[in-house]
């Protein structure tokens, strides 16, 4: 690093961080980073890098040295002309594309699993979501036969009501999934129901899209308000089915 000119070091550092963002978001996290977010991050990165590189007066001088030389050294005249011409072209191109109206749809960022309220009014009653438990869960150990029966009932409820969007493989790819935005949740994914408690699912299913807080864009979500269609018992059974079919475990307070 020491042998590289300071200016080159600065440019390289910023470029590396830029590429890093893109790699982490687009490939590691699997979701393309929105341009507006990237611009904001890069603003702070550039500001931060400049602050670090010009922290000492000597550092600042060293950084500016090649630029100074370019402008002041008569021997670098032709190089200077080339660099200046390139800068002008870049400025013109940038300004042109900023002035042409954008055709790209606005980016909509939303929280997928917003924090649940501590209590919620469902079915006309108030529920404490911190202590609410699936009333059928205990059969899993106590009476496996009864438990399997309940899972089978949950399966029937699911296939009649949920598969259209969440898919009969519970992978979020039901027949109508592509026509929805946001797309239905994939329950096979370890990042969804395995991270959540059964009481959370109960609240989300019962209140549906319109029950979401603002940061989760309730106006877009096509998740129906299931308390209008299913009984409490039916929701608890379908929750048993979701975990049983995918082999996931609900998160509990003990962990």
């Amino acid at each position: 690093m020491k042998s590289l000119p300071k200016l080159l070091q600065l440019v390289l550092t910023i470029a590396l961080i830029y590429v890093g963002f893109i790699v982490v978001f687009d490939y590691v996290l699997g979701q393309v980073i929105p341009a507006s977010l990237l611009n904001m991050y890069m603003f702070f990165v550039v500001a931060g890098a400049l602050a670090v590189f010009t922290f000492t007066e000597e550092g600042a001088r060293e950084l500016a040295a090649p630029l100074k030389a370019l402008v002041e050294d008569p021997g670098k005249k032709s190089l200077r002309n080339i660099v200046f011409a390139a800068v002008l072209v870049a400025v013109a191109v940038f300004a042109y594309f900023r002035a042409v109206p954008s055709l790209e749809a606005p980016v909509e960022l939303r929280t997928i699993h917003p924090a649940p309220p501590s209590s919620a009014k469902l079915y006309g009653k108030r529920y404490d979501l911190l202590t609410l438990e699936n009333p059928y869960r205990h059969f899993e150990k106590e009476d496996p036969e009864q438990f399997n029966e309940l899972v089978a009932e949950g399966s029937a409820i699911y296939i009649r009501n949920c598969q259209y969007c969440h898919g009969d493989k519970l992978d979020g790819k039901g027949p109508y999934a592509q026509g929805l935005n946001p797309v239905p949740l994939n329950f096979q994914d370890v990042g969804t129901i395995a991270q959540l408690q059964e009481s959370y699912l109960f609240w989300r299913i019962a209140t549906g899209g319109p029950g979401l807080p603002k940061e989760a864009a309730p106006w877009n979500s096509s998740m129906p308000i299931w308390q209008n269609f299913l009984s409490e018992e039916e929701i608890w059974k379908v929750i048993l089915f979701l975990y049983d079919y995918t082999g996931q475990r609900p998160r509990s307070w003990e962990e």
């Binding site: 002008l88 400025v91 013109a92 300004a95 042109y96 594309f97 900023r98 002035a99 042409v100 109206p101």
Partner: peptide
């Protein structure tokens, strides 16, 4: 937008020049 973006680009380039 007609020729507006073009003029804006020209103006920006002149300014920097």
């Amino acid at each position: 937008s007609g020729s507006r973006p073009f003029f804006i680009a020209l103006l920006a380039a002149l300014l920097v020049a």
